[in-house]
């Protein structure tokens, strides 16, 4: 139940370099007068990041994940709620993984 000095050092270093990007992004965005182009960039950023987080893993997955993602999109499109889409995705992926073993 103790923290060794060398471990403390590493964790402190990790904490600092993890916090810096979290804070400086907003700070940098506030430094500049937002031009139309900069605003268009910031507004397109969330969607582009989310697509980038999902797309590579999904492409590498298989039919169960593809169909589950499609079902998630369909339900989310109709309900606009987080929970229905999430529940649909998980139920479909579990069922299809049993039905379509890879």
């Amino acid at each position: 139940m103790d923290v060794r000095p060398e471990t403390l050092l590493v964790i402190a270093g990790m904490a600092i370099v993890t916090y810096l990007p979290r804070a400086t992004g907003l700070w940098l965005a506030g430094r500049f007068e937002l031009s139309d182009r900069l605003r268009a960039w910031l507004e397109a950023l969330p969607g582009a990041i989310l697509v980038s987080m999902v797309a590579p893993g999904l492409v590498r997955a298989g039919p169960p994940e593809w169909l589950a993602a499609a079902a998630t999109v369909a339900v989310a499109w109709r309900t606009r709620g987080l929970l229905p889409g999430l529940a649909t995705g998980i139920v479909v992926v579990v069922l299809l993984r049993q039905l379509l073993p890879t």
Binding site: V73, I90, V93
Partner: peptide, 19 residues
């Protein structure tokens, strides 16, 4: 087996649709 690895993909996908 519980499909929990897919939870993150599903959540991000829903948020994309909303976005």
């Amino acid at each position: 087996a519980l499909g929990l690895d897919f939870a993150f993909v599903a959540v991000f996908t829903v948020l994309l649709v909303c976005l």
